[in-house]
Amino acid sequence: MKTKVKIYSSLAAISLTFFSININAKTLKIGDIAPDFNVTTLSGESISLSELKGKKPIYLKFWATWCSYCKYEFAHLQSIYNEFGEDIQVVAINIGMNDSINNIKKLYDKNNYALPTVFDKKGQLTNSFGVVGTPHHILIDTNGKIAYRTFLSTDHLDNQIKDWSDHSLKQNTATNSKVGIQK
């Protein structure tokens, strides 16, 4: 009997992880215009969708320190940032629900994570993107449109990021060649 109670408790916790944020939030679909935002990271960096529009795609990862899937995926997020951070703006957004900046710092210090991170204390950014559970990944293209969203890290997510990075590399090479010709 105790084993069944533990199993049901675990299933309930997992369900709450995925569906506990804001069920009333409007879910944005692929192709929808992303809501503009201007946030400040824990390190003091300002990131704005309107400033990045036309320049750089954005990868938003909504997460929490109490979310086991989120923590499991974090090493992967750090590697994405390390490899593609010049071409794609990566932002880790802690949803702020039952969490703290201190918990984030402990996790980052323990695992040597160094990512642009926002603490969404009141859940405004989380709600504006219609996020209803963690982890949640959203890709925004350079036109400011939702290009992809998923609950878990997927091959499709990785391939889209790589494609965007390859496209950025080709654009930079072409721009540098043009500059070289004009000299």
Rank of each mutant, 00 (worst) to 15 (best):
N102D: 14
I138A: 03
M1L: 10
E45Y: 08
F74H: 12
F151N: 13
N172C: 10
E83R: 12
T142P: 01
D32S: 08
M97I: 15
G180E: 09
N111L: 09
L16I: 07
E83G: 05
I95Q: 00
S153Y: 15
Y59N: 03
V91T: 00
I80R: 04
H76Q: 11
S43N: 11
D109P: 05
S79D: 13
I80C: 10
F18K: 03
S20C: 11
I33Y: 02
I23H: 08
T27Q: 07
C67D: 06
H76I: 15
N112L: 10
D36S: 12
S100W: 07
Y148S: 09
N172G: 12
S15V: 00
K61R: 07
I58V: 15
W63T: 02
G85W: 02
K122A: 05
S168H: 06
N176L: 15
N94K: 01
A147G: 06
I140L: 00
D36V: 04
K178M: 09
L16V: 06
G144F: 01
I21P: 00
F74S: 05
T134M: 08
T173C: 04
K26H: 07
K2M: 04
T65C: 13
D158M: 13
Y148C: 09
C70S: 11
Q160G: 06
L125A: 10
I161C: 07
K106N: 13
N143H: 01
I21S: 00
D166L: 14
S79C: 06
E83M: 12
T126Q: 06
I21F: 02
S68N: 10
I161S: 03
K170T: 06
T134C: 08
N24R: 11
H137T: 06
E73A: 11
S10P: 04
R149M: 09
L42Q: 03
G180D: 11
K2S: 06
S165I: 10
I138K: 02
Q171G: 07
L60E: 05
D36F: 03
I33W: 02
N111Y: 11
E73D: 13
A92G: 06
R149A: 05
A147F: 04
K106A: 10
M97L: 15
D99R: 05
I80N: 05
W66Q: 08
T40C: 05
W63K: 01
N111V: 08
S10E: 12
L107F: 12
I181W: 12
I30W: 05
L11R: 13
Y108G: 07
S168M: 09
E86I: 08
H136V: 04
E86G: 13
G130D: 02
A12M: 12
N24D: 14
K145W: 03
I47N: 03
A147I: 03
K55W: 04
T40W: 05
K162T: 12
V131T: 04
